[in-house]
C-alpha cells in the first residue's frame, strides 16, 4: 500500500488590515453593529470598573486621599478649580452612563434571543427597539447630567490637614486615628 504523502500547504495568513476588518465584523447588517457596540461598551465599562474599585478602596484606606481623588471628578485639583477638568469629567461621565445603558438594554435583547431563538427572525426590529429605548433614556439623562455645568461648581472644601501624621497627598496630612 502506497503511502500517501500529505504535504501541508503553508498556512495563509491575511494581512493586518484584513485581519482587523474580519475581527471587527460579524456577518454584516444591524447584528454586526449591536455586536460591536456591545463589545466596545463592555470593554470600556470593565476598564472603568478597575479604576472605580481602586479609587473607592481609598475610602477605607485614606479618607483624605479619597476626597482628594473624587474632587478631581468635580474639577478641583489640590483645592484649585479648573473648569476644563470639570467639563471633561462631565462628558466622560455621560459616556460611561451611555455605555452602561446600551450594554444593559442590548444585553437583555441578547438574553431574550438566546432563550427564544425563533425571535431572531425579527432581529432588525429588535435592534430598532434597543436604539429607541436607548435614546428614550439617554436624551433626558444627557440634559440632566449636563445642566449643572451652567451653574458654578458646588465644590466642597477638604478639611485643613492636622499638623501631625505622615503626608499622603502633597501638602495634605491625614487626621490621626
Amino acid at each position: 500500500m502506497a503511502q500517501t504523502l500529505i504535504t501541508r500547504p503553508r498556512a495563509y495568513r491575511p494581512g493586518l488590515w484584513t485581519r482587523l476588518r474580519a475581527g471587527l465584523s460579524y456577518g454584516g447588517g444591524v447584528g454586526q453593529w449591536s455586536w460591536l457596540f456591545h463589545r466596545v461598551t463592555g470593554i470600556g465599562i470593565a476598564i472603568f470598573l478597575l479604576i472605580h474599585i481602586v479609587d473607592t478602596f481609598f475610602v477605607v484606606a485614606y479618607p483624605r486621599l479619597y476626597d482628594h481623588t473624587v474632587s478631581i471628578y468635580g474639577g478641583v485639583f489640590n483645592g484649585e478649580y479648573y473648569w476644563p477638568l470639570r467639563w471633561g469629567f462631565r462628558v466622560g461621565e455621560l459616556g460611561l452612563i451611555a455605555c452602561v445603558v446600551f450594554h444593559a438594554i442590548n444585553g437583555v435583547r441578547i438574553i431574550a434571543f438566546d432563550f427564544n431563538p425563533k425571535a431572531s427572525a425579527h432581529a432588525p426590529m429588535a435592534f430598532n427597539l434597543v436604539m429607541a429605548a436607548f435614546l428614550l433614556i439617554m436624551v433626558p439623562v444627557t440634559v440632566w447630567v449636563l445642566l449643572p455645568l451652567a451653574e458654578p461648581s458646588k465644590h466642597w472644601k477638604m478639611p485643613e490637614a492636622r499638623p501631625e501624621g505622615p503626608a499622603l497627598v502633597a501638602g495634605a496630612e491625614p487626621a490621626p486615628r
Binding site: 473624587v70 471628578y73 440632566w144 449643572p148
Partner: peptide, 12 residues
C-alpha cells in the same frame, strides 16, 4: 448620577 451628582460625592 441622577439623584445626586459627582460634585457632591465625597467621604462624607
Amino acid at each position: 448620577h441622577i439623584l445626586n451628582n459627582v460634585e457632591v460625592i465625597n467621604y462624607h
